[in-house]
Design a protein around this nucleic acid. Structure first.
Lengths: 159, 159
DNA sequence: TCAAATAGCACGAAATCCGTGCGGATTGCT
DNA sequence: AGCAATCCGCACGGATTTCGTGCTATTTGA
């Protein structure tokens, strides 16, 4: 399926929110999960889980305790969509061998020169990957900041 | 998840095989599912299901009865990866509204001018889609035809 | 009449993803 | 010291999607 996971979408929403917060005044301040979840129809608990993963991937910095939260570790134009996807879904299987058209005769497709030929689908995925590497958080944020006007409550699962 | 389905991979394998068959001599002849399945480690039954879908999408033409099978309906450079994906997984949700960042205040996001702004992820997916529209079956086939040398039996599920 | 092949439908199994529960550790404020 | 807010880590049940298969009907050529 060519579709981002909910987790990734939630993560992007959070990152865009952090980018906005950094640009509009309070730079360096930590934004809590609660605040982010109050603005979008997103399950708070899952958002927290996603932000933890983003922290592990060192895309955001976390602070515990009161007044804690998350903040971007780099500038919005220094964070790519590819990094976010890799952090939350794992980098798609581009590097090693694919599933299909794999002949059982070849051992394990180490570094043989035939390997890139055998799976032309790799190039397609690399194209997609390159597209995401060229898409920065900044380019995502600047267009969506217009709609993040009013806070809205969570319609479902307001845990 | 940014990954093609097994069904799509199987479909592409079949289409590449059909393209090869059309180019190397026997043009117009119908290739059976059995023959295709004998060349790749692919569950025959599922391959048949996939080819049926491709026939419904009018990408291939089918012939029943003895000496029946499938054949390409167009030239390999006239069939795009996007068409195959659309036929086998359904066109990804680019046209209408996405899941995330959808404010409950807006009714159903019909044709309002704010809609393309609200989901910057749409542009990413359109980019991916465009990439697949520009990838023809021919470009996939010409690189992989080198490896389709010897027929190989199915390692698993040789039904 | 028979064998080979596609067409159609539907079903169980497997994998993935979603969302949540629970306890622990930190930190700032009173 | 105590308390409340917040992140951290692990793990689990349920929902959704996908995979693969079974069965039967229909068509076609020998």
């Amino acid at each position: 399926m060519i579709q981002l996971t909910k987790r990734t979408e939630y993560g992007l929403i959070a990152l865009v929110h952090l980018a906005d917060a950094a640009l509009t005044g309070r730079d360096g301040a930590f934004v809590s999960v609660r605040e982010i979840a109050e603005h979008y129809p997103v399950p708070k608990r899952l958002l927290a889980e996603v932000l933890k993963d983003l922290a592990r991937a060192e895309l955001v910095e976390s602070a515990r305790g009161k007044d804690g939260g998350y903040t971007l570790r780099r500038q919005p134009d220094q964070i790519t969509l590819a990094e976010v996807v890799a952090a939350l879904e794992g980098r798609p299987s581009i590097s090693s061998c694919e599933t299909a058209e794999r002949s059982p005769s070849s051992s394990n497709c180490g570094l043989e020169p035939v390997c890139p030929i055998r799976s032309p689908l790799h190039r397609v995925r690399e194209g997609i990957w390159g597209l995401m590497e060229r898409t920065t958080l900044r380019s995502l944020a600047q267009t969506s900041s217009l709609v993040q006007a009013g806070p809205l409550l969570q319609p479902k699962a307001l845990t």
